[in-house]
Design a protein around this nucleic acid. Structure first.
Lengths: 199, 199
DNA sequence: TAAAATAATAGACAGTGTTCATTTTTTTGG
DNA sequence: CCAAAAAAATGAACACTGTCTATTATTTTA
């Protein structure tokens, strides 16, 4: 059949991504199935492939949505933050991951083949998140050190990411660590202090 | 057929793990197939399941071997290290991951169901690696601060892990960062200095 | 050598991603 | 208003996957 209703192509795409997102959040990356997504929205598997072409690109689209939600989450937290914006930042990173473990992990579980480059739209979304952090890091540094903000931001994101990963995958629990967030925050504070003091 | 040669059960297990390891290194976690492993060692798929029971347990066994090799790698580097043992440590972490990207990533790609606990042998291996790091961190701290070593070690492992992850998965490249190792090392040095100074 | 234990097999099952010829629906133009 | 063109949706087919299990082959044991 052709157009079954007033859904335009873009609306269908949105439907698929939305249901895919719901599925991914529910069952996790390893059990995610494009067929199941199709079934749930009342379409056949072929339609998914007409729209997205490939399983990879579907996951990419869903993960892009996760990135957008994550950035929103951070912005909201920062908007009503108290004085300690750095804590708000680290806490926002952690809380999104904890509240959406399957979605958050799927971002890093999914790896596209080495020859396939990341579509521009996808790393645009990622850049947004990085920029939010970079802005806060810059604000936390004294003016003369502010040029170091972008590079320091990248590094601190990696630092917090590592702590968050170990918190969610159980590594910290196995090591007997019960307060990963405080641990991450301590590292971030040290690095900011060191940068402020100037090397 | 029964025993086709003088391979004992333990030897067969070793054969499977070894070939599985080779496979995993070659094709990566997402394309890894127990069937293919069976084919390559001239056994049928059933044998793999007689020995390991499940795909998860096979991957677990293979990843455990990776952990052992990683610990060996670190020990070797440290054994012939110059004065800068901290750099050696961070470099050892990175170089193993870079030299064995598929094996290293597979450790974190693989997640067993939340209800299934990690078999003891597996986190024994992990603990070995943690202890190697903890020992070096303790040695790098002044005596009065030495009790903080285990917790700081956990945190610094997470820090380096985060940087290593972003280095391998291309996140740093997208962010325009070209020297992840130096970045990680800088963070580790700052934290050690802060700990030495005593908060 | 016969019986019991062990080891290995491979077919069956229910999934998966992917492709594509076919069919259905919608849009368009006369 | 209706026929032709365009667009959208289908679902069977293919080659895989992990998993289970009845069957068969081999070895050990008594």
């Amino acid at each position: 059949m052709g157009r079954r209703s007033d859904h335009s192509r873009a609306e269908l795409e949105r439907m698929i991504i939305l249901e895919g997102h719901r599925q991914l959040a529910e069952v996790g990356f390893s059990r995610f199935s494009a067929r199941e997504v199709a079934k749930r929205i009342g379409y056949s598997i072929g339609t998914i492939y007409n729209v997205f072409g490939t399983h990879d690109r579907l996951v990419l689209a869903i993960n892009t949505r996760t990135f957008r939600l994550w950035a929103d989450h951070l912005r909201n937290r920062l908007a009503c933050a108290g004085g300690d914006r750095i804590r708000t930042l680290v806490d926002g990173y952690f809380s999104f991951a904890r509240e959406n473990p399957n979605l958050w992990m799927a971002i890093y579980d999914h790896r596209l083949p080495p020859d396939v480059p990341m579509p521009p739209e996808y790393d645009d979304e990622r850049r947004v998140l990085t920029e939010i952090v970079a802005r806060e890091i810059a604000a936390a540094l004294p003016a003369p050190r502010r040029e170091e903000a972008p590079r320091l931001a990248r590094s601190l994101i990696a630092t917090v990411h590592g702590h968050c990963t170990f918190a969610l995958n159980g590594s910290f629990a196995l090591m007997g660590e019960s307060e990963p967030l405080e641990l991450a925050l301590a590292r971030v504070r040290e690095s900011l202090a060191a940068a402020a003091a100037g090397k």
